[in-house]
Design a protein around this nucleic acid. Structure first.
Length: 420
DNA sequence: TCTCCGATTAGAC
DNA sequence: CTAACGGTCTAATCGGAGA
């Protein structure tokens, strides 16, 4: 039986989240900015039509924005995460086999379902009616082709938001693939597109038909998998349960330049708190802690310095206080007062499950040290992230990111609901 | 010569 | 007024060090 894999992808996800609570913005050209109000990360169709590019720095768009009244909002991840959960939960009603691939995308295995087209419209309809989120559905025999089908559904309004690759004849498939530039294929980015062009591979069809051994030796196994998927052989299984992270990073660009050590350490203690909370949430601990600092690489006239230093621990930990001491120590080692820092971060690696804990004879006996962290996680879950902090957190300002135009947390904070 | 490591690259969103 | 350009994560690959 041909697998019937649907990719459900939300349209202009962040913009759509904002519009659900601001119907008055329905036709206003608008964009959502990255952290620190830096780059454009989501665009309404109107903003796309005006030529705003994905990832473009916002200050570059300002002349155009003023001329056309483009509205820019800071990103509101609490809102987007909550809306995403609502959409995903609805999709799970249509099939237990789902892979939440990203905040706005989900693979749904519909293999064996009769009347796929009706079912796809029903998914769109129900998600739209229950959450207000517009989505498109692409169906194919492999993830890569489901992605490709979704691209077609998004691009051609005639499809009404649903496109089924499996329903095409052989001729229609080849016509479609021949019209599709190779960079539209999932897994083919800018660099690969350039290199492929040198081999005369310009369309999805060219990639599908390319000489496999040559492709393998020139471009590696990843692209070979993509090719096989274009040939309708599944090489990327549905991953229903997200696997544990092997590496956890928490980092941020600062709202301004930071020149003082205590401010850096204050920022780092917040990053440590984030990273360790994630580590504990997956019942793991880490054996290597790394801290990095960065000056502003876009300010070419300023001296640049991007140090990074790691410390292997004698035994793994997930204790925020302990990690924080190491992070502060690493930061002090690298800090040089003559530079202006724009970004810093913490990386936890060599992550393993708690169950693998190796006792250490030299480890100080502190049998209930994890209880403190449990209490901290419990309070933060109950009263919101940041309700309880490590004492070094928040003593200094000047590093917090810029978020000048953030919408209210409509769905996750009572105090933000305007009509309550 | 083989293996392991860290660093780099490319991709996704 | 000026400066203003994201964050996380994975897998593959490469080159050097050490066995």
């Amino acid at each position: 039986m041909t697998p019937q894999l649907a990719l459900v992808d939300c349209n202009n996800f962040y913009v759509s989240c904002e519009r659900i609570f601001r119907p008055d913005l329905a036709r206003v050209p608008m964009v959502i900015l990255s952290n620190n109000d830096g780059c454009v990360v989501s665009r309404s169709n109107e903003a796309k039509a005006l030529g705003i590019k994905m990832g473009q720095p916002w200050f570059e768009c300002q002349p155009l924005a003023e001329a056309h009244g483009i509205l820019a909002l800071s990103s509101n991840y609490a809102l987007y995460a909550d809306m995403s959960n609502r959409v995903m939960n609805i999709l799970r009603d249509f099939s237990p086999q789902c892979e939440v691939y990203s905040i706005d995308e989900c693979f749904v295995d519909l293999t064996g379902s009769p009347r796929l087209r009706e079912l796809s419209y029903a998914m769109r309809e129900r998600v739209g009616r229950w959450t207000g989120m517009p989505v498109c559905v692409g169906i194919g025999p492999t993830k890569t082709l489901a992605k490709l089908a979704n691209h077609v559904a998004k691009k051609h309004p005639r499809s009404q938001g649903v496109f089924n690759y499996n329903a095409l004849t052989g001729d229609q498939k080849s016509q479609l693939l021949k019209r599709l530039p190779v960079q539209e294929v999932w897994g083919v980015g800018r660099k690969l597109t350039q290199r492929l062009a040198l081999h005369g591979v310009c369309t999805a069809w060219d990639l599908r038909e390319a000489h496999m051994p040559t492709l393998r030796s020139e471009f590696g196994v990843v692209l070979e998998k993509t090719q096989r998927e274009l040939q309708e052989t599944s090489c990327m299984p549905l991953e229903e349960a997200p696997c544990d992270k092997q590496q956890i990073i928490s980092s941020r660009s600062f709202g301004g330049m930071v020149t003082e050590l205590p401010v850096l350490k204050d920022a780092l203690s917040t990053f440590v708190a984030n990273a360790c909370a994630k580590l504990r949430a997956q019942n793991s601990h880490a054996a290597v802690i790394q801290v990095f600092l960065q000056t502003n690489r876009f300010r070419k006239e300023l001296p640049q310095y991007t140090p990074s230093l790691a410390v292997p621990l004698p035994y793994p930990t997930n204790d925020s206080l302990e990690v924080n001491r190491w992070a502060g120590w690493l930061c002090e080692r690298m800090f040089k007062p003559e530079y202006q820092y724009k970004k810093a971060g913490v990386m936890l690696s060599e992550i393993s499950p708690l169950s693998h804990h190796q006792g250490d004879l030299l480890e100080t006996a502190r049998p209930d040290k994890h209880k403190l962290m449990q209490a901290l996680d419990g309070l933060n879950a109950r009263y919101g992230r940041g309700a309880v902090k490590v004492s070094t957190q928040g003593a200094y300002t000047g590093w917090q990111m810029k978020q000048e135009r953030k919408s209210p947390n409509y769905t996750t904070s009572w105090t933000d609901v305007p009509w309550v």
